[in-house]
Amino acid sequence: MKKLINDPKSVVDESVQGFGLAHADLVSVNPDPLFVTRSGAPVPGKVGLLSGGGSGHEPLHAGYVGIGMLDAAVPGAVFTSPTPDQILPATLAVDSGAGVVHIVKNYTGDVLNFEMAAELAEAEGVQVRTVLVNDDVAVEDSLYTAGRRGVGGTVLVEKIAGAAAERGDGLDAVTEIGRRVNANVRTMGVALAACTVPHAGVPSFELADNEVEIGIGIHGEPGRHRIAMENADSITERLLAPVLADLQLQSGEKVLLFVNGMGGTPLSELYIVYRHAAAVLAEAGLVIERSLVGNYITALEMQGCSISVLRLDDELTALWDAPVNTAALRWGI
């Protein structure tokens, strides 16, 4: 394992410190317990928006702290959810009295730790609502598993709920918008090569030279099944089919198409995937109103991508377009 790190144990701390230094105009870093807040938080009268989870998915979540998106991000160890003693003070730090929405990706560890933190925050008088993100159609038997995982859709939930909070929506309204995004977005991913967790030192799984893993999550965990390598267009169709089937989109509906890189795949390849995904959606009579292509929710240096489709309505589109100023997503400001 070769990585630009000093010590596997200090990866998250040092990386978040560097992030804080590079974006001192946007965020403050609380070193211990570790969390990141928007400069000037809490914003008086505004609902606080907080997310967090294991590290290794950068720019998620700290990269989305700023105007029009998150008020706080709570980074855990690599691929390990943060703990209540981080989540609680971060929640308190961004509560202006209007309450705080926790955006939680549906993994057992995240759910349990955020649940405990929410209970503790409520005990301290802060109103907390949770938006659980579970957009991963790779998980088929959600009854017999921990349920669908939160993956690419998380970025869209954070952007759109963030815009709702910024325009002054109340706690229930922001929660409703976040859940609406989650209900209308589906994602499916593929890995061509695994990533290596710093403290593990070896790749999370092994793929043969001619194999790809379909239905991968964002934690280096294996996916739905392995298949022999195919070309980009075929893989794109494999990823899109369950997404479209699950969303039950009708011809003429408007969507946001999000092709996300897992960290180690060149941008040029993501655009090759986008190209065919756009053709498939057009074929289905769908209108791509908005798009996003890039490394927005990653799994360290994993090679692969995910495709998310979000059904848009006019309100969601307007909230997507609303100004945002974060380290990783910025427009209109």
């Binding site: 390990t80 003693d85 560890g109």
Partner: peptide, 14 residues
């Protein structure tokens, strides 16, 4: 355990 472990195991063992 609750404050240091994280993941699923932290809250469960905690």
């Amino acid at each position: 355990l609750m404050s240091k472990v994280g993941g699923a195991a932290g809250p469960l063992y905690g």
